[in-house]
């Protein structure tokens, strides 16, 4: 299988651990990824104001890049890119007048966008096409006795028109972790917002959320958290520094991308996990479980 891949900005910076581990896992699963040429930032948030068309230009331009590769689908990893690309796509598909205006604005593009590209998240590809039972067969290092809280945040599941799983009780990450041999645990904060971009000017608000989300996961016995959004990852991992300052009894907890755990189980080399990019070091718990 071959698929076009849209990385987005953060996967090339802070979330290199997300990208490297995902690409290695896909290689182990015999999926060939082709990164788009000349991709641009998706804008990170879908524009909510009805009259604001200009902010849909960036995501739609990326979908033109997909068409230029003679394919009609594209895979993303970042939850924000997934949400923005998919929502902008649905927006223009349901409103031909807006699509015409956006195409006219981009009159220098060789290809016209016609709403004909499908935006997929890696989790959908794994669940619906590769299938978890086939992934389980390729596991060389089962994540035995590892209790994992799976955190979805907002943008993988909301709004429900574009979400990749149940809006209130998604289970795709838990099912994947089960296939990898881990013990996923359930906790009530798995779709709670981490306060997102408030991290720039109100890190103290993020510390409150991080405290709530992680103590809830810990109370259910979780040893680490797996997730799929680089902004959630920053807030839940790096903002633990502010969380401890505000709540001295708070106990630190490692945060990993689901792809790092998958790469580990599928036998990818340790350098593809980029475990050096974490604020809370995940190596001790992985070593304790005999995984490193």
């Amino acid at each position: 299988m071959k698929i076009s891949y849209y990385p987005g900005c953060t996967l090339k910076n802070n979330a290199k651990n997300f990208e490297d581990s995902a690409l290695c896992s896909l290689k182990q699963l015999e999926v060939e990824t082709e990164e788009l040429d000349r991709w641009n930032c998706c804008g990170t948030v879908f524009s909510l104001a009805t009259d604001d068309l200009i902010h849909h230009v960036a995501p739609i331009r990326n979908l033109i890049r997909v068409k230029e590769t003679n394919t009609n689908r594209v895979m993303t990893l970042c939850a924000m890119c997934f949400n923005t690309l998919k929502r902008a796509n649905e927006r223009v598909k349901s409103d031909p007048e807006s699509l015409d205006k956006i195409n006219e604005f981009m009159y220098r593009e060789q290809v016209k966008y016609e709403g004909d590209v499908k935006v997929l998240h890696l989790l959908e590809l794994l669940r619906d096409e590769i299938k978890f039972e086939n992934i389980a067969k390729k596991v060389v290092k089962p994540l035995k006795n590892l209790k994992i809280a799976n955190y979805y945040g907002c943008l993988l599941v909301r709004p429900k028109e574009i979400g990749l799983d149940d809006v209130e009780n998604p289970t795709v990450l838990e099912n994947l972790m089960t296939a990898l041999g881990a013990d996923p645990i359930d906790f009530p904060y798995k779709t709670e917002c981490c306060a997102s971009y408030q991290t720039v000017d109100k890190p103290e608000n993020v510390a409150d959320r991080t405290y709530q989300i992680l103590t809830s996961a810990q109370s259910q016995g979780a040893e680490l958290v797996s997730l799929s959004c680089p902004l959630c990852a920053f807030n839940l991992d790096h903002r633990q520094k502010e969380t401890v300052k505000k709540y001295p009894e708070f106990k630190n907890m490692p945060i990993l991308y689901f792809t790092q755990l998958m790469a580990l189980a599928l036998g990818c080399p340790e350098e593809d996990l980029r475990l050096d990019l974490h604020y809370i070091d995940p190596k001790p718990i992985l070593r304790k479980k005999g995984l490193l």
Partner: peptide
């Protein structure tokens, strides 16, 4: 959001998606 008032420490290792989305929203 007064972007020009953000210190280097504020921006620190904050990922690009956070900076861009807060500018888009604020």
């Amino acid at each position: 959001l007064k972007v020009e008032k953000l210190s280097d420490a504020d921006k620190g290792d904050v990922p690009p998606i956070a900076i861009i989305s807060s500018m888009r929203k604020f």
